[in-house]
Design a protein around this nucleic acid. Sequence first.
DNA 1: ACCAAATTGTGAAATATCGCGCAATATGGT
DNA 2: ACCATATTGCGCGATATTTCACAATTTGGT
Lengths: 225, 225
Amino acid sequence: MKSEKISELTTNRLSVYLRCLNEIAVAGAKTVSSKALADRFHLNSAQIRKDLAYFGEFGVRGVGYYVEALRNHLTKILGLDRENRVGIIGAGRLGTALADYYGFRKANFTVAALFDADPKKIGKKVGETEVKDIKNFAAVVKQDNIEVAVIAVPAEFAQAALERVEKAGIKAVMNFAPVALKTSNGVKLKSIDLTTSLESLSYFLAQPPKQSSRNVKPKVKDRRE
Amino acid sequence: MKSEKISELTTNRLSVYLRCLNEIAVAGAKTVSSKALADRFHLNSAQIRKDLAYFGEFGVRGVGYYVEALRNHLTKILGLDRENRVGIIGAGRLGTALADYYGFRKANFTVAALFDADPKKIGKKVGETEVKDIKNFAAVVKQDNIEVAVIAVPAEFAQAALERVEKAGIKAVMNFAPVALKTSNGVKLKSIDLTTSLESLSYFLAQPPKQSSRNVKPKVKDRRE
DNA sequence: ACCAAATTGTGAAATATCGCGCAATATGGT
DNA sequence: ACCATATTGCGCGATATTTCACAATTTGGT
């Protein structure tokens, strides 16, 4: 275990490992090796060991990792053992779809409130959650202990939404608007940009087919079984 | 211009640049410098120049880039000047929300069909688009010239969906199921994993606050104005 | 015609990320 | 007790990506 800074690539993979461990636990295995994990996705076993080693020596040489123990460790490391209260800004199609997205619950995220500026939407309920006036954002955040904001508004309003979020003292934000946002220091912003993902796929299709061989993932030298 | 392989990080950025150029074009500027572009997002101007240089010498020294010309180049490079026909697999909440997502149209993607296995959903219409039986996937793909598949089914069915897609000869797939999929050679898979993104945010929140200084983005040394 | 300012394209240096290879160590068989 | 096998943790070299820094070029002012 070292106390270097952890890259986001690593934390993303931790999430994937945990997901996999859950499957393995259901299947009933007691231990699992990094090699076995690596084979499930297309990853290198050394990378898995290295990712885990940032946080401790969880494995046993000659044996592998104890599934239950590693599961508990990863759950704690990722903070999934505590509730994360979420406020979603934007009660449009995306915002309301997210409000009852199962994945939130699975990651121990509770959608505490939805916010919108449209008087026609304010006051309505989406599932269990009431749509509140965005003007009351800061007050609701305090009252409901909201720590995470999700921005699901059109691109032109996203920066303003982010600034309101930051003023309310929130430190973790997930953004779905297709726009580059500027954050203040200490605020963690994670963006999911569907447009960019689509256009990147489009690029692939637009390329002459000879180049398709480039996308063959020549990695994964760990898979000779 | 060199003919190296282009990283996906680069193509993602091209998409962002294009979006920015569109704004600039609306604002009426004729030319733009890499520095001006860099300042809009938190990027390094050299990176922008280098990204563009993979595809040609679009700039003029001492002047910058002609907005209209660069816009046209990027549109072509990303393949946004031709229609991309899409089939969405899974007519659940996500699939139907995607079916009339505005971003698809903007990127010149046309949702040609939705597919599902549930007899209750088959035959219904979502906006303009009819929900078809997944069993007829390959036939519909041929008939409607579908080139891109979007997987919006629960995780446990995603791998099967992908295999069906590949058998139908489709080479570009976007996956929303939170699971690591295995693709055949030559098939481009782009995954958007909300669960992983959430858990990565959760990690940030779970960390002791001393570490928040790590996330200050010490990059962007190009911003001294 | 010349010079200062602006700005590109790009080689080279700096960082970041990944994968190999192996010593260290645990297990199970004999 | 010993040896063969399995498998981790990790140093180190390999790749990938980003950033620097500067010659080359264009523009506009004098």
